[in-house]
Design a binder for these strands. Structure first.
Lengths: 349, 349
DNA sequence: CTGAAAGCGCTAACAA
DNA sequence: TTGTTAGCGCTTTCAG
């Protein structure tokens, strides 16, 4: 159904058709078609004749018509929350590069975290007969929505949080990521380490906290629950959280942040308090967005590599679309710690 | 022609067709079509019957087929250099938001500054029968390329540097932007002001330099050519340039940078020299990319508003596509100066 | 308000 | 190697 879509749709210029080219060259439409499709069963002579006619008439191949007839599609949909969010922007870059290299055209949709919007986006994409969909949108990736795609036999690959077991997905190992960050901090002599920011209801948060606890446990350090502060996943959230932790009767010497954005907020809050990340408080981020290498001090962070995640998802989708492999694929990327400046330990305790 | 494209193209699932829906509902295909298109000439009764059949059969409208038959298109192409470049990312956001709101689907292409790539992108877009194209790519926007589109009667709107007079375009007034930045600096007591970074062969550079000179002239300050240093438009370019200017026998007290990226490089170079933007040297950027508000110190910069530029271009294209107005449109955005921290003048001279 | 017939621009058998 | 005949899934006259 094409409900709620009252979009502008505009007259296509009536271009030169294959038929006209064929006539001009004195061959049949089928022959002209063969040439346009690089079929080998054409004599060099007619080929040149037809090519010449195309040039003369200014012919432009109509891929839309061709796809309709041949029942093929080389477009895929990508759904993300918001391009302005660096993590998604990076994911988009990864997806686009990978897919572009394989000749796909990508239709981009943004949900701004609205579940309704997501559904309507998927509808539109289906109407455009996409060959597959990558869903980077989170949360709101309801099981029903995805199953709708499954039923239509459209390959889907998810980024983060698979809502079931039969889906392809790629995620980063958040538990592991948090753990290596903590081990680094602990190795630097820190014993009181805070976890700041993020939404406790989301899987990535739970996983990162799990890694946080795990590392503490292995180091024989008792978890101090008052050092864990959830807050909005935003700069402001980070700033608020650090102000709060600074008032703690026994404040931490290091903080692991839910992600880089929060970490930037933390560094900001520190400055507001006349303090400095690295010198007065070790801070570690998560995701390694490009800005992390550009801040002052440069942020030590765990590579979530959203770009790699995107590229991986795209490659998975490509495999699935071309049917090279039909087993459900789950890819779990092992993050690494990128050590920069925000934990310089000249203040080692 | 479909040359050089050997892309993967995959079987489309054979979905339920309007024909089948019509049969199921006991009406003709034409009637079903009327319903799907929200035509009014249908009785509520048959409408419901058909709608019900669609639901039962899981019908999905085929917009591709519909567009073919009705000779319409609701997709437009956007060509940019590189998504990873914040300026273009912002432009993409603006374009996408605006176009999305009008029901268009956007096909994204990236050139990475390769002229060849740009041509092949345009070919692909034409093959997909886009209704219009926005070219944010620079340089390499050859006159021929654009005229090719003109001849096919495809609306184009350019961002930056129109290569002729008959094209729609939107640009920011770079002369004015540089001028207000300079006036601010001069008003703060600076007399020796440097212009750092950027490619002298590009129009934006020439315009910004023109504004730089103009402001100096109005203030009765002689231009010192040794204070103008071109360098790659990158962080490294900025860092190199500031290192160079720092060795000047009579160094400047302020710098106007070609753009924000260069400005970040400058701030970086300053730190490497134990100096600090704002305190030891006033630095102004250009473009106002999101990162400008997040750096330390926060960057004072001229709003190039790439997002607004994108949205404006999109809106122009929309007008042109719907034929609401056929006069060539040139929009020149007046930039503003966003004063933040990188020029705090406690070091006023 | 509804249906029959034609056809958008192309590809896919099948013959020749 | 080439042409002929269908027809992808939809919209569009034009009748009724």
């Amino acid at each position: 159904m094409s409900k709620e879509i009252h979009s502008v749709r505009v007259d296509k210029r009536s271009s030169v058709t294959l038929e006209q080219v064929a006539k001009h060259a004195g061959v049949s439409r089928a022959t002209a078609s063969r040439i346009v499709r690089h079929s080998t069963n054409v004599s060099a002579d007619t080929r040149n004749k037809v090519l010449e006619s195309m040039r003369e008439l200014g012919y432009v191949y109509d891929r839309v018509a061709a796809n309709l007839r041949s029942r093929k599609s080389a477009t895929v949909g990508l759904i993300i929350n918001d391009i302005a969010n660096p993590v998604f922007a990076e994911m988009l870059i990864g997806v686009h590069q990978e897919l572009d290299a394989h000749g796909y055209t990508v239709i981009l949709g943004t949900t701004y975290e609205l579940a309704d919007k997501q559904d309507s986006l998927i509808s539109t994409m289906l109407e455009y007969r996409v060959g597959g969909v990558i869903m980077g949108s989170v949360p709101g990736t309801s099981k029903e929505t995805i199953e709708r795609l499954s039923q239509l036999d459209i390959p889907v690959v998810l980024v983060r949080e698979p809502p079931g077991e039969d889906f392809d997905y790629v995620v980063v190992d958040n538990v592991f990521g948090a753990q290596i960050a903590m081990e680094y901090l602990i190795g630097n002599g820190h014993r009181r380490i805070s976890f700041l920011g993020g939404p406790p209801e989301l899987a990535p948060w739970r996983d990162r906290i799990a890694g946080y606890r795990k590392a503490l446990f292995h180091a024989g350090i008792q978890v101090d629950e008052s050092l864990i502060i959830a807050s909005p996943t935003s700069r402001q959230g980070g700033t608020d959280a650090v102000h709060q932790i600074l008032r703690h009767p026994n404040p931490p010497t290091a903080v692991l942040c839910y992600n880089d954005i929060v970490a930037f907020g933390v560094m900001n809050g520190l400055r507001e308090a006349g303090l400095m990340a690295g010198r007065d408080l070790a801070v570690v981020g998560f995701d390694d967005i490009p800005e992390a290498a550009l801040s002052y001090p440069k942020l030590t962070t765990v590579t979530g590599s959203p770009r790699l995640v995107g590229a991986t998802a795209a490659s998975l989708l490509h495999q699935r679309i071309t049917g090279m492999d039909n087993a459900p694929k789950r890819i779990i990327l092992k993050p690494e710690l990128v050590i920069r400046e925000s934990c310089s330990s000249y203040l080692k305790l």
